[in-house]
């Protein structure tokens, strides 16, 4: 790990003043479960690390009648154990518990889950976010791509979004708040995640001079997350799906199905959404929606298996959400 200057400010304004204008100057530290590994691997070499855990306004979960506000430094354990999350946002609780290590859930934060860098081994190995060789060719399509994208992978990005909470937040229509010294801005969760088109871009809308401060999630929809995993113990899912359903009686008025770990961003499966409108969810309907969700999949040489796993995730998430309250 390269040496760095460290600060632990007590206010958001002080923290924002400590950030740089370009990536690489300063990194924000919350849980540290991803940042410390990135620094040990030399993928991130910030000259300053700004710890935001001491900033009180970035914590806490508050519910109003129509939404829940979740502070950026809320840990995944706090999120999963929160009564309001348990009652109204099971899609987030399931996703948080899917981080199957108590040690990570105790340290890792909501903001950190959204801002963690991709697990792509070419990226982690120092080949850059777009994993190109010295001739500018991607290493992924002809390389070891069994955990890479099956959607949104026409290039140049082939990694998958590692966020556990992202698919549920996109499905639920959450808003993400970003602060800088110039003020705050709100970004729809669906627009927070970005597929980079060049090496100078990142995979989220966050700028180097901004801090993610909170997430606001609407309540009132039935929702669920289902993750397909290689093993039950600590690992990222191979494929996941989050769904949010607005109901009219026993039928779906509108649905949002979002896939996780299959594309460079949480991937809205709009064909499934259209197919589900007006239907009552049965096993057959859920299966048709799953097929529609993956209709445009373009697997790489080693990851066609993820198509079926993602279908299973969609079907099971829909059947789980259909049982739910709210």
């Amino acid at each position: 790990m390269h040496a760095f200057e460290y600060a632990s400010p007590a206010t958001l304004q002080d923290a924002l003043k400590l950030l740089g204008q370009q990536w690489g100057q300063a990194d924000v530290l919350a849980g540290g479960t991803d940042l410390l590994s990135l620094m040990k691997d030399g993928v991130h070499t910030p000259r300053r690390v700004v710890n935001i855990k001491g900033i009180k306004e970035l914590g806490g979960i508050q519910a109003s009648g129509t939404s829940v506000r979740i502070g950026a430094t809320v840990t995944l354990d706090e999120l999963a154990e929160s009564p309001v999350i348990r009652k109204s946002l099971p899609a987030l609780r399931t996703a948080a518990l899917g981080v199957t290590s108590p040690q990570i859930r105790n340290m890792g934060t909501v903001g950190g889950d959204l801002c963690q860098r991709p697990r792509c081994w070419y990226f982690r190995g120092g080949h850059g976010l777009l994993a190109r060789d010295k001739n500018g060719q991607s290493l992924v399509p002809n390389g070891e791509n069994k955990y890479h994208a099956i959607l949104g992978n026409r290039g140049p990005a082939y990694f998958v979004s590692p966020s556990s909470l992202g698919p549920a937040l996109v499905a639920l229509g959450a808003t993400i708040k970003l602060a800088s010294t110039m003020g705050t801005r709100e970004v729809e969760a669906a627009r927070f995640f970005v597929t980079p088109a060049s090496d100078t871009q990142r995979e989220t809308a966050l700028m180097p001079y901004e801090i993610l401060t909170e997430v606001v999630v609407p309540i009132g929809m039935r929702n669920a997350t289902y993750e397909v995993r290689q093993k039950q113990a600590l690992d990222w899912p191979l494929a996941a799906a989050a769904v949010a359903l607005k109901m009219k009686g026993t039928a779906v008025e509108s649905a949002r199905v979002v896939l996780g770990h299959v594309a460079p961003t949480p991937w809205p499966a709009t064909q499934a959404d259209q197919m589900l409108a007006g239907k009552t969810i049965t096993g057959d309907v859920a299966e048709q929606a799953a097929r529609a969700a993956l209709a445009d999949a373009t697997p790489l040489s080693q990851n066609a298996y993820k198509v079926q796993l993602a279908r299973v995730a969609v079907k099971r998430a829909l059947l789980e959400a259909a049982k739910g309250r709210a």
Binding site: E5, Y6, A7, S8, P9, D14, K17, L18, L19, G20, Q21, Q22, Q25, A26, R47, R48
Partner: peptide
């Protein structure tokens, strides 16, 4: 760092 020197940095 290029960022302005902040109070409390160590």
């Amino acid at each position: 760092p290029a960022a302005a020197q902040g109070a409390g940095a160590m």
